[in-house]
Simulated assay, not measured.
Amino acid sequence: MVTKAKINSAMMKWAREYAGFTHGHEERLPKDIKSKYEAWEKGENSPTWNQLREVSKKYHIPTAFFFMDCPPNFDNLPNMINYRKLVADSIYETNSPNLINNIRKSETRREIYLDLLNELNEDILLFKVPKLEHDTKIFSNYIREILDISLSTQKSWYKEVNHYNFLNKWKEVLNEKLGVLIFETEGVLLEEMRALCIFHEKIPIILLNGKDSVNGRIFSLFHELTHLLLGESAICGDDENTQEEIFCNAVAGEFLVPEHDLNISINGVTDLLSYNSLKKLYNSYGVSEHVILRRLLDANKISRKDYISHINSYEESFSKSSGSGGNYLNNMIKYNGKAYYSVILDAYEVGIINSLEFSKFTDLGKKQIPKLQESFYGGE
Rank of each mutant, 00 (worst) to 15 (best):
L126T: 15
L151Y: 12
G286Y: 08
L189T: 07
R304Q: 13
E26M: 02
E191F: 14
I81M: 04
H223M: 13
M193G: 02
K334N: 14
W49C: 03
H25F: 13
E184A: 08
E259V: 15
H223T: 09
P370K: 10
E93Y: 03
E107T: 01
I206K: 04
N330V: 02
L167G: 09
S152N: 15
K169N: 15
K301T: 00
V269D: 06
L86C: 09
D271P: 11
N82R: 08
K36F: 13
D123W: 00
G179S: 05
F183I: 02
Y164I: 05
F199V: 07
H134A: 06
K202S: 05
R104H: 10
K137V: 02
I353K: 02
K36S: 15
F67R: 02
E316K: 15
G20Y: 01
H134W: 10
N162E: 07
A252Y: 04
N50P: 02
G378Y: 02
E119I: 00
M12Q: 08
Y18H: 12
E357T: 06
R104D: 00
W170M: 05
M1V: 11
I352W: 00
F358R: 10
A19D: 03
K42H: 12
H60V: 07
K338T: 13
Q154R: 13
D239L: 00
D123M: 00
N267E: 01
Q154T: 10
M11C: 11
S140W: 06
V291E: 12
I7W: 13
I333A: 05
S342P: 03
T3P: 02
D306A: 09
I205M: 01
I333T: 10
F361M: 14
E240W: 03
I91E: 12
S313Y: 06
E26F: 02
P47N: 07
Q373I: 06
K85P: 02
A10S: 09
M80S: 00
E349W: 00
A339H: 13
K169T: 01
A5S: 14
H23W: 07
D115R: 04
E289S: 10
L356K: 15
R28H: 08
E54N: 12
S9F: 05
E17S: 11
E26G: 08
F219M: 06
L281A: 10
N79E: 15
S46N: 14
K31I: 12
M80V: 01
T22L: 12
S277Q: 06
A5Y: 12
K360N: 09
I198R: 04
E26V: 03
K279H: 11
N73G: 01
I218M: 09
S35C: 08
S152T: 15
P204W: 06
S317V: 12
E27K: 11
F66D: 00
E244H: 13
R109S: 02
E38I: 15
N45R: 10
I138Q: 06
I198M: 08
W14T: 07
M80R: 09
K4Y: 14
I146S: 12
S90Q: 13
M68V: 01
E176H: 01
N79A: 04
S46F: 15
I33Y: 11
H134T: 08
L364E: 03
I235N: 04
H163C: 14
R16S: 07
S152E: 15
N98P: 05
L52K: 05
L52V: 13
Y328L: 07
Y113L: 03
Y113M: 04
G268H: 04
L132R: 14
F65E: 06
L132T: 12
E119Y: 03
Y275S: 13
F67H: 07
H310Y: 11
